[in-house]
Simulated assay, not measured.
Amino acid sequence: MTTPITPAEPSNAQLVVAITARALFQLEDGHDLFEREGVKAYADFQRQRENEALAPGIAFPLVKKLLALNAGAPAGRPRVEVILLSRNSSDTGLRIFNAIEHYGLGIIRAVFTSGAPVYPYIKPFGAQLFLSANPESVRRALEHGVAAATILPAKSAGDSAGEASTPDEKEDVSGQLRIAFDGDAVIFGDESERVSQQDGIAAFHAHETERAHEPLSGGPFRGFLAALHELQQAFPARNSPIRTALVTARSAPAHKRVILTLREWDVRLDEALFLGGRDKGPFLQAFGADLFFDDSKHNVENARQHVATGHVPHGVSNP
């Protein structure tokens, strides 16, 4: 059993994460039925089972760790809020709220759109991150300036193509929330990645060396990283329940610009892995990432052999 971590001092920092029902719970059976037979069949299916708890979905372990950061927070001032966004109706969504109650998740706000897009409601809630199982919803959120990713489960060694492991309810003995980020086109803009893809690695290194003291532009996840960093400040650095890592294909001499950019932004990343093109998956497993964000489909497929991964469809790698 882990010892609760006491914040170093009161903080007004709040992290707001919006998540879809299909990312939080296993709703694929019902979704497949909807695709085959339509809304009425789906509605009947959910009503008949509304008192049966839904199984945990891809993002369930992550959400539990996020909400656990509220332990000891002042009443009415949670450090983290998770907002549920769903294309269900409020009627079929009752089963989802029942599952939230069953698992004791502290989620009190939700939007049910009866099939309409959910992304317009992300910004009014002030969410810094949106996680969905629907790639189109993720793209629309990114277009509207919200950090967003299509969350994909880790594949176990025995999984066949297209299948993935299901999260269980075993507790991480550390209880620490561990989030890892790619650099270019995720935390940073994609201008350097464009040089690499268009002109080659030698041109990329020359470009980054010449501009080592020129801060990189911010990518779609800069705001989320800043919010996560601010939340970290509420806890003692030596015993924080949050740990972050940069896991990038960059290597020396392209490392310098990254370090100086983060210094300019006054943002802390606990670990930085400059892998020089090595596969990221084994390193993410060694870090123990609860979730890793990357724009490259190749990196995403490699990473999800080991950890849950969010694809960020942004930048030159995602035309």
Rank of each mutant, 00 (worst) to 15 (best):
M1V: 08
T6V: 13
P10Y: 04
A13H: 11
Q14G: 10
V17Y: 10
V17A: 11
I19K: 04
I19N: 04
T20Y: 07
Q26G: 08
H31K: 04
R36G: 05
V39N: 13
A41R: 00
A43F: 07
N51D: 15
E52A: 15
E52T: 15
A53Y: 12
L54V: 09
A55F: 12
G57E: 12
I58D: 07
V63P: 01
A68S: 11
L69I: 14
L69H: 11
I83C: 05
I83Q: 05
L85G: 03
S86F: 06
A99Y: 11
A99I: 06
E101A: 15
E101W: 05
Y103W: 03
G106F: 06
I108E: 12
T113D: 07
S114G: 13
G115Q: 12
G115H: 13
P117W: 15
V118F: 08
V118A: 06
Y119N: 12
Y119P: 05
P124M: 10
P124E: 08
P124T: 11
G126K: 11
G126A: 15
A127R: 10
L131V: 05
V138F: 11
V138H: 07
L142M: 09
E143W: 10
H144M: 11
H144S: 14
V146K: 03
V146M: 02
A148C: 01
A149Q: 10
P153E: 03
A154F: 06
S156W: 09
G158K: 04
A161Q: 12
A164D: 07
E171Y: 01
D172H: 04
V173T: 09
Q176K: 10
A180L: 03
A185F: 08
E193R: 08
Q197P: 02
Q197M: 13
A202T: 10
H205P: 00
H207L: 07
E214H: 14
P215Y: 05
P220I: 05
P220Q: 06
R222F: 13
L225I: 02
A226L: 00
H229L: 00
Q232S: 07
Q232T: 04
Q232N: 04
Q233I: 00
A234K: 00
P236M: 04
R243K: 02
A245C: 02
A245Y: 02
T248G: 02
T248D: 00
A249V: 01
R250S: 05
A252Q: 09
A252G: 05
H255R: 01
K256F: 06
R257F: 01
V258T: 09
T261P: 02
D266I: 03
L269I: 06
R278G: 03
D279R: 12
P282I: 10
P282V: 12
L284Y: 06
D290I: 10
F292Q: 01
V300P: 00
V300N: 11
N302A: 15
R304V: 12
R304W: 14
H306K: 13
V307Y: 13
G315M: 13
